[in-house]
C-alpha cells in the first residue's frame, strides 16, 4: 500500500470520529442550557462549545450565538469546524477513492454535500437538534460502511487506527473541558446541584448517562464518572477501551517495517503504565492524568506517522 494512501485512510478515521464527538458535544452542551437546575449563564455554555471545537475566543465581550455557529459549524477556514472537518474527511477520501469501497466514498461524499447544503444565514438554535441528529445518522452510515464494506485487512486497520487515536483524544478532551467547567463553577461558588448537572452533561456528551445510571445504580460522583470514562474496558467510549483497541489495531497491521517492534513496545508499555491510574476521586490528579495522557497519545500519533506515512 502507498504511504500516502495509508496516511489518508488514517485521517479519514480521525475525521469521522472527530465529527461524531463534536456534533454530540454541540447538541448536548447547547440543550443543557435550557433545562439547567438554575439559570445557567448562556455565555458560559457557548464558551464551552468554543473550547471543545478548539476555536480561539476572546473574553472581553459577550459571545453572540450567531458568531459561535459561524466559528464552530460554518467556517470553512477553521479546520476544526463541522464543515472544515467534513471537507478534510472528504478530500482525504477523494484522493484515495480507489482504495475504499464505492459505498464508503459515496457516504462520505453525501455527508459533505449535506453539510454544504446547510445555509448559514438560515441557521438558528432551533436547527441545532435536527442538524446534529442528521450528522449522527450520516456518521453511523459511514461507520457501518467502514466496517461492513471493506475487507478487514491493512487499509481497514489504518482507518480504525485513526478512529481509536481520535477517540482517545476526544474522550480526554471532553472530560477535560467539563472538569475545567466544574473548577470555574466551584471557584465562583456555584451550588452542588449545578456542579452535579455539569457531570450529567459530561456523561451525556459521551452518551454514557444511561450506562452510568445502570452500572452505578443512580449513584453519581467524580469517582464513579472517572472510573467509567477512564478505566472501564467494556465501555466503548472509555479511555481504556479506546487505547486497548488502538494497540490491538496496531498489532493487526501486516506490514511491519523496521522499527515497528520498538515502537509497538513503547506504546504498549506507556498505555499499560497509564492504565494503572486509580485516583479517580481526586479532581486535581484526574486533571493532571488527563493532560499527561493527552500528550502521550499525541506522541503515539507522531510515532505512527513517522513509521508508516513518511
Amino acid at each position: 500500500m502507498l504511504a500516502r494512501v495509508a496516511d489518508s485512510l488514517y485521517w479519514i478515521g480521525r475525521y469521522v470520529e472527530r465529527t461524531e464527538h463534536c456534533a454530540r458535544y454541540l447538541n448536548v452542551q447547547y440543550y443543557s442550557t435550557l433545562e439547567a437546575p438554575m439559570s445557567q449563564n448562556k455565555d458560559f455554555n457557548l464558551r464551552s462549545i468554543m473550547f471543545m471545537a478548539g476555536s480561539e475566543f476572546t473574553f472581553e465581550t459577550d459571545l453572540v450565538e450567531k458568531d459561535v455557529w459561524q466559528k464552530v459549524i460554518f467556517d470553512g477556514n477553521n479546520p476544526d469546524s463541522i464543515i472544515g472537518i467534513a471537507k478534510s474527511a472528504r478530500e482525504n477520501a477523494r484522493s484515495i477513492r480507489n482504495n475504499i469501497s464505492a459505498e464508503l466514498w459515496e457516504s462520505i461524499n453525501r455527508y459533505y454535500l449535506f453539510c454544504n447544503s446547510i445555509r448559514e444565514s438560515k441557521f438558528n438554535y432551533g436547527k441545532i437538534f435536527s442538524f446534529t441528529e442528521d450528522i449522527n445518522i450520516n456518521m453511523a452510515l459511514i461507520k457501518s460502511n467502514i466496517h461492513n464494506t471493506l475487507l478487514h485487512d491493512d487499509p481497514w486497520s489504518f482507518i480504525c487506527l485513526g478512529i481509536y487515536v481520535e477517540r482517545s483524544l476526544q474522550v480526554l478532551r471532553i472530560f477535560k473541558s467539563k472538569i475545567s467547567d466544574s473548577i470555574i463553577l466551584s471557584d465562583n461558588g456555584a451550588n452542588q446541584s449545578l456542579l452535579q448537572y455539569q457531570w450529567i452533561t459530561l456523561l451525556k456528551c459521551l452518551e454514557a448517562f444511561d450506562i452510568h445510571k445502570n452500572y452505578y445504580k443512580g449513584f453519581l460522583s467524580l469517582k464513579s464518572i472517572s472510573e467509567l470514562i477512564l478505566s472501564n474496558a467494556a465501555f466503548p467510549r472509555s479511555l481504556k477501551y479506546s487505547t486497548l483497541k488502538l494497540l490491538n489495531t496496531l498489532s493487526r497491521i501486516s506490514v511491519k517495517p523496521e522499527g515497528y517492534s520498538a515502537m509497538y513496545e513503547r506504546i504498549e508499555s506507556k498505555i499499560t503504565e497509564r492504565l494503572n491510574f486509580d485516583k479517580f476521586s481526586e479532581e486535581e490528579s484526574v486533571l493532571t492524568f488527563i493532560t499527561e495522557m493527552y500528550a502521550d497519545i499525541s506522541v503515539f500519533h507522531s510515532e505512527i506517522n513517522n513509521l508508516y506515512f513518511r
Binding site: M1, L2, A6, D154, V255, K256, P257, Y308
Partner: peptide
C-alpha cells in the same frame, strides 16, 4: 501522485508502507 514515486539507480519505485 508524483510524491508516491522515486527513482533509484534509474529504476522507478513506489513509496509504500513496507
Amino acid at each position: 501522485e508524483g510524491r508516491d514515486l522515486y527513482v533509484e539507480n534509474d529504476l522507478v519505485y513506489l513509496k509504500t508502507i513496507g
